[in-house]
Design a protein around this nucleic acid. Structure first.
Length: 414
DNA sequence: AAGACAGTCAACCGCCTGTGG
DNA sequence: CCCACAGGCGGTTGACTGTCT
C-alpha cells in the first residue's frame, strides 16, 4: 500500500474488493496457502499489494471468521480485556474466537465507547467519568490520547485509589511492554499468565461456565458500585486483577519478590471460585478456550458443543461437504432431525435457517457474509486448514519454547 | 422526496519490529 | 552494524447505509 515497496512496482488497485478478486484470492490461498504475502497478488493474478491481500484474507475471507453482530457477552469481554490490555486490539482479538482486531476496534470506537460513556464510565481509563477531570468531553479527548499506550487501567476501587498513589504504573507497564530485551518478568508477562491461566482453567471449568473468570470488578453492570464496597476486605480473591496489578507493581519495585510466589498466586487466581456478577450462563466464555485455540485455527475445541466454523472440525470432520460445494449445488444440512436444502450461494450469504439456528445458539453467524455474490468452489479449504494446523503447531511449539526461555532467564536473574 | 446527520465497517496509512543478507 | 524487506499492528479515512427532519 501507499508507502510500501510492494506497491511501487505497478499500478495497484485500491478500495473495495470485487467478488472476482475475492474469488482469486480464496482460490489461491486455499490451494497454495499464502506463503509470502508479497508474492500472493502476483501468483493469484491480483492487482493488489500483498498487504492488501493479507488484510482482506485476515479480516474478511478467512473461513474461520465469525460474522455478524457481537453478543452482549462478547462486548463485556472486550470491555474487560480492554481494561487490562488497552488498545491492543490484536491481543484482545485472540480472546474472541473468530473475531478480528479490526472488527473489535471498529466495535469499540463506534459502539462500546458510547455505551460506556452512557453508563458514566470513561472508556479509556475505565474509571467513572466524574473522576476523569470532571468527565467533560475535553477531558475525554485527552484521556483518549493517552489510551493508546495500553496502560493498565482499572475501574476505581478503594484498593486502586491507594494503588494510584504509587508512581508511574502505566509508565513502567509500558516500559516493560516495549523493552522486550529485559529478561525480568514483566507485569505484562504476569497479565498474560493471568489471562492464559483463565483461558486454560476455563477448559476444566466448574459447572458454571464462568466460574473461573476472574475479573468481577471489570464488569460494568448495575452492581458495579456494590462491588466497590465489598471488595475492600478481600484484596486478593475479591479483586484479583487489582491484586495482580499491585503485586506486579511491587515486583517492578522489588525484583527480589519471588517469581514463584507470583506465579503460584496467579495460578491460584484461576482456580479460585470467583463468580463474576454479570456473566453467568454465558456462552462466550465457554468459547474462551476456543479463543485461545483460535491462535491455532486448526484446533477444534468447542466445549459448548456449538458449531464453530472457525475450527477445523467444521471442515475436516465432514460436517459440511466443502469439497462438493459449488455455487448452485444443493446441500443437505441436518439440523435437529430436519433436513435443510440450500444452495451454496445461500450458504455463503447465511440465508439458510441453519445459520440462524447456529447464530441463536452460539451468537455467531455462519461464514455467511462473503460479499457481492462471490461464486467459487472451496475444494481447497481443507488443505488450507491442514496447512494452518501444521503452521500453528509449529508456531505454538516455537512460542512456548521462547516463553520458556524468557521465563527461565527471568528466574535466573531474580 | 430530499437533504442532513450519525453509525458502521472495509480498507488504507504509517509506524514498528523481526529477519536475513 | 547497516540496510532492505516482510509482516503485524493501531489509528484513521471514506464509502455506504439507515434514520431523522
Amino acid at each position: 500500500m501507499g508507502g510500501h515497496s510492494c506497491c511501487y512496482k505497478q499500478k495497484l488497485r485500491k478500495g473495495l474488493w470485487s467478488p472476482e478478486e475475492d474469488e482469486k484470492l480464496i482460490k489461491h490461498i486455499t490451494q497454495f496457502g499464502h506463503g509470502c504475502w508479497s508474492s500472493v497478488p502476483k501468483q493469484a493474478g491480483l492487482q493488489r499489494c500483498g498487504k492488501s491481500c493479507r488484510l482482506r484474507w485476515i479480516n474478511y475471507l478467512r473461513p474461520d471468521l465469525k460474522r455478524g453482530t457481537f453478543s452482549k457477552q462478547e462486548e463485556d469481554l472486550i470491555i474487560e480485556l480492554h481494561a487490562v490490555l488497552g488498545n491492543r486490539w490484536s491481543k484482545i482479538a485472540t480472546h474472541l474466537p473468530g473475531r478480528t482486531d479490526n472488527e473489535i476496534k471498529n466495535l469499540w470506537n463506534s459502539c462500546i465507547k458510547k455505551k460506556l460513556r452512557q453508563r458514566g464510565i470513561d472508556p479509556n481509563t475505565h474509571k467513572p467519568l466524574a473522576e476523569v477531570d470532571g468527565g467533560d468531553d475535553k477531558a475525554l479527548d485527552n484521556s483518549e490520547k493517552n489510551s493508546g499506550s495500553g496502560g493498565l487501567q482499572l475501574p476505581v476501587t478503594p484498593e486502586l485509589a491507594i494503588a494510584n498513589q504509587l508512581p508511574t504504573v502505566d509508565k513502567s507497564m509500558d516500559e516493560s511492554t516495549t523493552s522486550k530485551s529485559s529478561a525480568t518478568p514483566t507485569k505484562e508477562f504476569f497479565l498474560d499468565q493471568f489471562l492464559a491461566n483463565h483461558e486454560n482453567s476455563s477448559t476444566c471449568r466448574s459447572p458454571s461456565p464462568m466460574g473461573s473468570f476472574p475479573l468481577p470488578l471489570l464488569s460494568f453492570g448495575p452492581d458495579y458500585s456494590s462491588s466497590l464496597t465489598t471488595s475492600a476486605a478481600l484484596p486478593f480473591s475479591s479483586n484479583p486483577l487489582l491484586w495482580l496489578n499491585q503485586t506486579a507493581r511491587q515486583l517492578d519495585a522489588t525484583p527480589e519478590l519471588s517469581c514463584n510466589a507470583i506465579s503460584a498466586a496467579v495460578s491460584s487466581l484461576s482456580t479460585s471460585a470467583i463468580a463474576p456478577p454479570s456473566c453467568a450462563g454465558d456462552s462466550t466464555i465457554s468459547n474462551w478456550h476456543a479463543a485461545n485455540c483460535n491462535n491455532n485455527p486448526g484446533s477444534s475445541v468447542n466445549e459448548s458443543g456449538g458449531f464453530m466454523l472457525q475450527s477445523s472440525c467444521s471442515f475436516d470432520s465432514g460436517i459440511f461437504p466443502w469439497s462438493e460445494l459449488t455455487p448452485d449445488k444443493v446441500v443437505q444440512v441436518q439440523l435437529g432431525g430436519e433436513t435443510e436444502d440450500l444452495k451454496w450461494s445461500e450458504y455463503l450469504h447465511g440465508a439458510f435457517p441453519a445459520s440462524a439456528a447456529v447464530q441463536a445458539q452460539s451468537s455467531q453467524p455462519f461464514y455467511g457474509d462473503i460479499k457481492g455474490g462471490s461464486q467459487f468452489t472451496i475444494s481447497g479449504l481443507s488443505i488450507w486448514q491442514q496447512n494452518q494446523q501444521l503452521q500453528h503447531q509449529l508456531q505454538a511449539a516455537d512460542i512456548s519454547g521462547k516463553d520458556f526461555q524468557s521465563v527461565s532467564v527471568g528466574f535466573q536473574q531474580i
